[in-house]
Amino acid sequence: MMQTEEFQPRIVAFVCNWCTYIAADAAGVARARYSPNVRLIRTMCSGRVDPQFVLGAFEKGADGVLLCGCHPRDCHYSVGNYKALRRYKLLKKMLSQMGFEDDRFRLEWISASEAEKFRKVVEDMTERVRRLGPFKPNGSSTPNGGK
């Protein structure tokens, strides 16, 4: 059987400086291997992530967007993650109305010590988005190879 080259999704992760960024550093220190598809953008708090960043990411060619912050009650600025959660829900609704598949946009709470969770989330997200195939701006993305 001919093996067609596997689709390599491009995923942007907005990560909070105090938790998920550190978890990603810790994953490095632990030499945890994960797929290179996820690219991190650091903000001070998940609450800084403007919906236009998420839309901008899709517009600029991302196939998926991951938003990561501190666990509930753990935000360095006490409640920034709740604001992020609220925005996430709104945005999620809007994206689904626009025809975005559910797996393209995801929110995860990952604390500084959860390097392994970070790795798993990255792997899982990559796999799910890979299955969805490339994102097409008009909402009609093509599933990968029909498998």
Binding site: R48, Y77, V79, G80
Partner: peptide
């Protein structure tokens, strides 16, 4: 934290080191 910046509907609130255009 930048929470206000992400919420401002007019683009008036901004944050040093994490400006919209930088991101």
């Amino acid at each position: 934290c930048g929470v206000c910046v992400a919420a401002c509907p007019s683009g008036a609130a901004a944050q040093r080191m994490f400006e919209d255009d930088q991101i």
